[in-house]
């Protein structure tokens, strides 16, 4: 076999390897039963959020009070019972899914885009820029994330938008760190050197070569952070700093139902379970992805 032929062969093998990276991850991921359960649960939550109007009307069923039917136990009419204003808990949970997923995804997107931008610059350029960015982020990290979010909402006022901004900002340092670490781990690889050597521009290198190759840990982190964001949304709403009643949100449903737990626990049981299940399923997916990306940890 000639040397040239052999080289081509090796190149062919490398190409196949690269192309099948995601296939490979999926191959490992689907063997993880827990992760698949998480995936199915999340699909279920997304369907509930998308098709909520088919289950019940927002105005009539989720918001309108019906004092005559208050605090009813679960029945065929009201699967999870009714709350202190006679509203169907199941339908309110279904509409709550919309808010939780929406706030979770948007706030993570905010954190990912700002934190990711700062992290890539810090990681790619290093030196003084890196130092300056990371020191500033250290300051933000010195405040526990949920407290920072509470402070921001307390200052800006309680609303869904402010909630997303607050949770997003509180998560910026985490994303910056993960993206920076991911960039650092691929920055000195030879293909990056090669791209530099042929004169590619910095932003081309970052967007085309560095980021795609450091995607994996970022995706895992984002998945886990959506879970945290859902938890934070519920937490802030629970202490009255997030989504305001009567809007159906899981945390504020718990806050509203607190007074009735002595005689009627369903009012806090089901919204809480919704939080646990959605957070759990995202954690399962995140863990599954991480194991699939890093098979040595198994």
């Amino acid at each position: 076999m000639s040397q040239k032929h052999e080289n081509e062969n090796i190149k062919g093998i490398m190409d196949i390897k690269k192309r099948s990276q995601w296939a490979d991850i999926w191959h490992h991921f689907k063997k993880n039963k827990a992760a698949i359960v998480g995936m199915m649960l999340i699909v279920l939550f997304v369907c509930l959020a998308l098709f909520a109007p088919l289950i019940g009307d927002y105005q009539d069923d989720a918001l309108k009070m019906n004092i005559r039917e208050r605090l009813q136990s679960p029945s065929a009419d009201h699967w999870f019972g009714t709350d202190e204003f006679g509203r169907d808990i199941f339908i309110r949970i279904v509409y709550g899914t919309r808010i939780s997923l929406f706030v979770g995804i948007i706030s993570v997107s905010i954190a990912l885009s700002i934190g990711g931008f700062l992290g890539s610059i810090a990681g790619y350029y290093g030196g003084k820029i890196d130092n300056a960015i990371m020191r500033v982020l250290d300051v933000i990290l010195a405040i526990p994330a949920i407290l920072l979010a509470i402070t921001i909402v307390a200052a800006l006022g309680a609303s869904i938008i402010n909630l997303m901004i607050a949770i997003g900002i509180a998560n910026i340092p985490g994303f910056a760190r993960v993206v920076r670490a991911a960039i650092l781990s691929v920055k000195d690889q030879e293909y990056i050197e090669a791209a530099k050597a042929i004169g590619a521009k910095d932003h081309t290198i970052i967007l085309k070569h560095v980021l795609p190759n450091s995607m994996a840990p970022i995706i895992v982190f984002s998945t886990l952070k959506v879970a945290t964001a859902i938890m934070a949304t519920a937490s802030l709403s629970f202490i009255g700093l997030g989504v305001q009643p009567p809007t159906p949100e899981w945390g504020s449903m718990l806050a509203g139902g607190r007074a009735y737990i002595r005689d009627y626990m369903y009012i806090v049981l089901y919204p809480g379970l919704a939080i646990v299940l959605s957070v759990l399923s995202l954690n399962l997916i995140g863990d599954g992805l991480r194991d699939a990306l890093d098979p040595k940890l198994k």
């Binding site: 938890m231 718990l254 806090v268 049981l269 646990v276 954690n283």
Partner: peptide, 18 residues
């Protein structure tokens, strides 16, 4: 452990109270 990190403390608290 996985369920533990997925439970919001305010809900866990309410459940323990109940």
């Amino acid at each position: 452990a996985l369920i533990g990190i997925s439970m919001p403390s305010f809900w866990t608290g309410l459940m323990l109270i109940i």
